[in-house]
Amino acid sequence: MPSSSNAEARAGRGGRRVLNASFVGLLPYVWLLVFFLIPFLIVLKISLSTAFYGQPPYEPVLDLAEGVGATWEKVKTLSLGNYTFLASDSLYVEAYLSSLKIAAIATVLTLLCGFPIAHAMARAPRGWRPLLIALVIMPFWTSFLIRVYAWVGILKREGLLNAVLLELGAIGEPLTILNTNFAVIVGIVYAYLPFMILPLYAALERQDPALLEAASDLGSPPWLAFWQVTVRLSVPGIVAGSLLVFIPAVGEFVIPNLLGGSNTLMIGQTLWNEFFLNHDWPLSSAVAVVLLVILVVPITLFQRYQAREVE
């Protein structure tokens, strides 16, 4: 076989492989475009509409079948009214701020709980590690709703925690823990802890133990070596874990609903109520768009991390 046609055959084979790999991606690609990306555009469009009593409960309803001219007339009725309303009503502004605050506090606490656990896992004998990882993942496979609900029985006024504390004589009368922001934070820390532990573990497990020894060999006392090497080198894991907790926690609905109180303000719950109780679809769409805008930077950061981690 002449060498030129040989080379061609090889190029052809290589080329076909590239083509194939792109081709198999077509189906999920289209699926995600239709069911993930386009819905956001619809949310954006409806957030510019006005609430209307009927089905669907907003107007205008765009329909290209009515002709381009009629559609254009309708497009012109879209307005930023919902957004100005969100900005002017302190309830929404506070809900956003309070969500960010609760999520931030919970993220820091999750990190403080998760780091020692991940560190201990990474330093555990090699044979134990698969079991320890399985033990961390297991709760994550258990229903989120049930895990949050488990805390209702523990935290409520006549619940287990108060009973134990009363028995020990630590408190004179039951504390009100359930239906407070504190309970919401406990719930977030508990429910999202595995998400924090796993990336931290991945970062810690990769570290060469000799690095820590090198630092102490060069004169760093143990606490300083821990900070300079162990903590410093797990920064990617810390960032990833924190984003995995923080982003969903900001929009969390189940936890504030079950563990929070009447004065717990979280935007996920606000959105839910606007939608299911007030049936104001355009306003809840606007709430969602603003939430997304707030989260766009952390989400992009997370995607970067994930892409680097996998490739």
Partner: peptide, 20 residues
């Protein structure tokens, strides 16, 4: 005498260079 106070220094097999 802990490692960080000893007048010995070590060159590690893996080199243990701080990657950051």
């Amino acid at each position: 005498v802990p490692a960080h106070k000893r007048p010995t220094n070590m060159m590690f097999q893996s080199y243990a260079l701080f990657p950051h």
